[in-house]
Design a protein around this nucleic acid. Sequence first.
DNA 1: TGGTGTGATAGCCAAGAGTTATGGATGTCC
DNA 2: GGACATCCATAACTCTTGGCTATCACACCA
Lengths: 298, 298
Amino acid sequence: MDVHGRDLRYFAVVAEELSFTAAAKRLFVSQPALSKQVRMLEKQLGAELFRRDRRTVRLTAVGEALLPHARALIAAWEEAVAAVEDAKADERHTLVIGMSTSPSRGILPALRARLMTKFPETNPVLRQVSWTDPTAGLADGASDVAFVWLPLPDQERYRYVVVAREERCVALPAKHHLSGKRDVTIDELRDEQFLALPPEAGPVRDYWLATDTRDGREPRIGGVIASSEETYEAVANGAGVALLAAGNAELVARDGVVTVPVRDLAPCELALAARRDDERPLVRAYLTAATQDERRRR
Amino acid sequence: MDVHGRDLRYFAVVAEELSFTAAAKRLFVSQPALSKQVRMLEKQLGAELFRRDRRTVRLTAVGEALLPHARALIAAWEEAVAAVEDAKADERHTLVIGMSTSPSRGILPALRARLMTKFPETNPVLRQVSWTDPTAGLADGASDVAFVWLPLPDQERYRYVVVAREERCVALPAKHHLSGKRDVTIDELRDEQFLALPPEAGPVRDYWLATDTRDGREPRIGGVIASSEETYEAVANGAGVALLAAGNAELVARDGVVTVPVRDLAPCELALAARRDDERPLVRAYLTAATQDERRRR
DNA sequence: TGGTGTGATAGCCAAGAGTTATGGATGTCC
DNA sequence: GGACATCCATAACTCTTGGCTATCACACCA
């Protein structure tokens, strides 16, 4: 039913040379091997392709019919390989940057510029990843690098550069009794319903619930959020309150929702991460760029 | 460098199903075999074609690039097979009828008619073969059946039907001293130069030199002839005389050449022959037709 | 008539492609 | 939450395939 491309190549060359020995030389195989393969092809097709008179070889009508197709197939396969090579090259020049919410803070253009000076061919692609994946696509290979909130699940599998360190706020309904304050303590929020990341977020979910400050008691969960839009809606509707990074406050602080710093929570860290074993030049360069940019900003 | 068509088929089906187990079922192979083959293909191309997340399979960019080519190749091969099948069918319906000189005698149309009633699809092809091949193309497979003069070299390799039995004549220059006679004896020709078939004609050459009537003495050879035209020219130019079948007399009896029966030579036999091991229906039918036609004519 | 070149054949070996059995991870169902 | 099913990967084995070298039989050529 199928053919090996090789057999077609063999056939085409024998058809060209009209000699098994000459063809075998061109193909860098022994003459018996070539004879055998051609015979196999003939057997498979159920027809003679060549007529071998003692001393001469010529194409049969069936061989004549096959030859153009064989050539076309060989050419088509070469095209296919070329297409694959192109795709591989594209892939090498593409850097997929995952993020759950935009790192903003002017960092993306800065890193892009640094990367492009070093690898002008690069095509950096931004990719928005749902909050359900705290690695923003690193884990399943959907992203090459990603802006993530520490801590990461399986953190030893990644290497990262901290690009921002900011205090955490709480998003509250505007009419909440704490909404007017300059800042609050985590203790004041103890009895609130909290909006949580989905369970698969693992330790990151706990982090944004500040479970480590509650001496073992689980917070009350008012809903699950997987994007800034959902967070805004949930808070505005009174489903609960949510912790978030100061830099992301503006994403949810709109009609009916305000954000207030939580004074006694450790600041949170935004990092640019990559898979630890990913040594591709583009990836290394982007992380380096982040390191350098961070140093500059300080 | 080459691919096995099978691998492309495997790849295409997995790409369609986005599941190795489902694809394996459709392809009637075990799932590990399929996995392995796809991996081989990936290794050969130096790129991942699928991304296997624990539970899901999806195409990579490279796979996406390959897929249309793979499909095209599969289709192209199917077309090639179809072309081969067509050619095979053509071949089955084609009967190549070899002959050195036309058997004439009205036999060709008669046999053709008989053949076509039995196999209406048949395409009988007449093929003129040089006299250098006494089997008129049977030996090297260039003909499927052939009109030949007995005896044949390697006669046991063929089966045949005698279609005509006629006396032998001698072609003489018009001004030859025997040219006026009603008939001659072989003895009267003993001292003539004879025109002979080429050496590779083997026993047939001896036959037309009537060597068996010369008690061991070689005839004098005046030239080699491989067609009726050459015979006419050679006789007309006085290069020698030539024996030929009465039915072929008209082919050479023109300006300056006459033919005279040789009274004491056994009549010669024209036969329709085929390779003994050739059992193809068309070949058998043509021989049968010849048998029947011969019976009718008697 | 011996030398050279062609395709076919034989015998051997490594790689290819298939199998079954099994394992680890992930959903699903009761 | 534990039993079960499902998915892809791996391991170990078998048989086939595709390659090699050596050699043969035959045709051409000097």
